[in-house]
Amino acid sequence: MNEVILRTEHLTQRFGGLCAVHDANIQIHKNEIVGIIGPNGAGKSTLFNDITGMYVPTEGKIYFHDMDITGKKPYEITKLGMARTFQNIRLFPTMTVLENVMLGVHCKTRSNLIDVVLKTKRARQEEEETQKIAEDILKITGLYDFRYNYATSLPYGLQRRLEFSRAMASSPEILLFDEPAAGMNEQETHDLGEFILKLKGMGYTVVLIEHDMKLVMSICEHIYVQDHGECIADGTPEEVKANPSVIEAYLGKDE
């Protein structure tokens, strides 16, 4: 098994009296596809928000490559090599598809105000590289033909794909997808699975929150099951499926 690149230790997040995540200990190995499942309100998205710096955890620590990133800001964490998508798609509507993805490259470029006003060599080079990286990614995700359309003019499924593209553009080690299959039909979900496997093949580590059991069970190597803020089980898909408390808390509820 590969080295652990992301782990949380006793991570707890409270909102007032509500404990959204309690004592989460998660380990993500390099180049692994990890699923986080659980019923609505189980604290999955909160976990994501803690890891990506959107929230500051009440207790516990988050380590990325043994570096303590607890309480770091989202933009700092992205620069370190973690990129996410959102449950409710958040694209930049006044920017084109290409510009959305180019923004993903933002954290890898350095040109400052003086560079861009004087169009120095650095600014020109970076701009060219940024565009090339973005176009390459769009070719991979099949959005190249739409590159000059406004981001939110795309149909829903493609908007999701654009969000993946944008996340990939920051050349992260870990991609965190928050319910990537939400609103997709069976065929689209299947394609998504293929796409995520392709990402693994390209060397990415993928963590996803998902409700679609078929997708999770078919592509994830390791699964964490959250319920009422607690992690009630983890293991391979087979182990999780066989776990009685999972069946009771989650699968049992669905009958």
């Binding site: 990506t52 694209l91 180019m102 933002h106």
Partner: peptide, 19 residues
């Protein structure tokens, strides 16, 4: 691009590495 991203959605911009 950073400026416009912050205008459009500062949370998403922040998640993409823009302060």
């Amino acid at each position: 691009r950073g400026i416009m991203a912050v205008k459009d959605d500062d949370i998403a911009a922040s998640a993409m590495g823009v302060n």
